[in-house]
């Protein structure tokens, strides 16, 4: 099966460990993610300002590309891209006047988009559709006593209309990882915001959040945190180094994309993990658990 695919900018640069593990993983299920031609950066975060028409143009152009490709199911891996594209669909569906203004603005391109033509799907949803049985069948390695803390953050869950699972108590990542034979651990901060773009103007907020989230995961016995958002990844991974500099007693924990764990379990060559992109080196724990 072929599915249209929107990688987003980060997966081509700092998030190569995410794309690098997700695409071969899908191939194991005979799903080929076909990257859209000349796609556009989604704009990264959904604009909250009242006059946000201009910010909608980029995600809409990408959705138009997917519409024109004929393969209108559009896969995203990055939680941010997922959120922005999905919300652009809601936006264009819910406000006819603004939709007309956008269509007028794109007069030269002659393209129109109404929202229903494309379905944006996140990789977690796709894996859930594939189902536990199929996932189980492809697992090649068994791990014992390896506790994974799935971290959702905001972008997969909020606002409610775009949530891929329950906004308060999501289980989708747990279901998939458990199907692959992992043990997951509950920790109360799994849907807490990592402070996102505050990293640009006030990293102290991110530090405080990361500390809380990481402490909670560690206290609940986690060996690693897994997630699906490159910005959460940066905030939770790199910022731990900063926290450690200030607080010697702080216990760090490796952060990985959930696809990295699945790829290792399914026997995909470990090079695609690009471990050099990680600040907290996950290789010691992965070796200890027999995944490397």
């Amino acid at each position: 099966m072929e599915i249209s695919y929107f990688p987003g900018c980060t997966l081509k640069t700092n998030g190569r460990n995410f794309e690098g593990t997700a695409l071969p993983l899908l191939e194991l299920f005979d799903i080929h993610a076909k990257e859209l031609d000349d796609w556009y950066c989604c704009g990264v975060s959904f604009s909250q300002s009242a006059d946000n028409l201009m910010q909608q143009i980029a995600p809409i152009r990408t959705l138009v590309k997917a519409k024109e490709s004929g393969n209108t199911r559009l896969l995203t891996l990055c939680a941010m891209c997922y959120n922005t594209l999905q919300r652009a669909i809601f936006f264009i569906k819910s406000d006819e006047d603004k939709r007309d203004i956008i269509h007028d603005f794109m007069y030269r391109e002659g393209t129109k988009f109404y929202g229903d033509e494309v379905e944006v799907v996140h990789l977690l949803t796709l894996l859930k559709e594939i189902g536990s049985e199929e996932i189980k069948k492809r697992v090649k390695k068994k791990v014992d006593e390896f506790k994974i803390a799935p971290y959702y953050g905001c972008m997969l869950l909020r606002p409610k209309e775009v949530a891929i699972d329950s906004s308060n108590a999501p289980e989708i990542m747990e279901e998939i990882l458990e199907a692959a034979g992992c043990e997951t651990t509950y920790f109360p901060f799994k849907t807490e915001c990592c402070a996102s773009y505050q990293i640009v103007n006030n990293s102290e907020i991110v530090k405080a959040r990361t500390k809380k989230i990481v402490n909670s995961a560690v206290k609940n016995g986690a060996d690693v945190i897994v997630l699906s958002c490159p910005l959460c990844f940066y905030n939770l991974d790199e910022i731990q180094i900063e926290i450690k500099k200030e607080d010697k007693n702080f216990k760090t924990i490796p952060v990985l994309y959930f696809t990295q764990i699945l790829a290792l379990l399914m026997g995909i060559k470990s090079e695609v993990n690009n471990f050099s992109l990680h600040y907290i080196d996950p290789t010691p724990v992965l070796k200890r658990k027999g995944l490397l």
Binding site: Y40, C41, G43, M54, Q55, I57, A58, R61, F105, M106, R108, E109
Partner: peptide, 8 residues
Amino acid sequence: CVACNTCT
């Protein structure tokens, strides 16, 4: 770039 296409 906001992908407005004005340049094109």
